[in-house]
Amino acid sequence: MRKGRQIILDRVRSRVLPDRAAPQIDWDRLVRYDDLKAQFCDSAEFVGAKVHHVDSVATIRRTLEESAEYDSGKVIASTVEGLEGNFSASQVQSPQEYQSLDWMLIRGRFGVAENGAIWVPADEVDDRVQVFITQHLVIVLEAADLEPHMHAAYQRLGRFEGYGVFVSGPSKTADIEQSLVLGAHGCRTLDIFLIGRCK
């Protein structure tokens, strides 16, 4: 193990390259959106998500119950305060036990207007596998928490601990003849609930 390390570093150091400064991004050259919320919704729908506009968490369940896939008899887990599920993570011993999840309801920290991505750090869930193993994913997001693009997204993130993922739409594949199929290995559908107005 030490062998490979020394070989690689020696090889790299044996060839000194002229230094090139790391570029600083000129933010004036980046895209600006007049209406972050409209752009976010456009992007999210483009990548296959469904966006709902609500006033508060309280109205989310009613909207969900109108959806054909949703059924309170199914296995529903939630880490959203005020939106209870029927599956308790407290007894879970291994991540494999989440395989029965039909619905997973979580909060996202912020969304990105240019691509519909939502930042989900590990502390929004009991186990990060929940985001991927569930059949259907619901992300609740404050409309005030939108960033225009990925540069702003990473600036907002700063240094963070552990695992985090940007989720943009439901899982998908086009590996068979380039036909787009939603629901590859991860969630089959993604519903985004945007609460309130933009900042």
């Binding site: 991004i25 240019e114 691509n115 990925m150 600036q155 985090g164 993922v165 989720v167 943009s168």
Partner: peptide
Amino acid sequence: GVFTRLLARSATGQPITTYTSH
């Protein structure tokens, strides 16, 4: 910020991949 904007757009014409995991 730069690479996540370029990768999926260049690869498949998506604005970003579905999952960008850190």
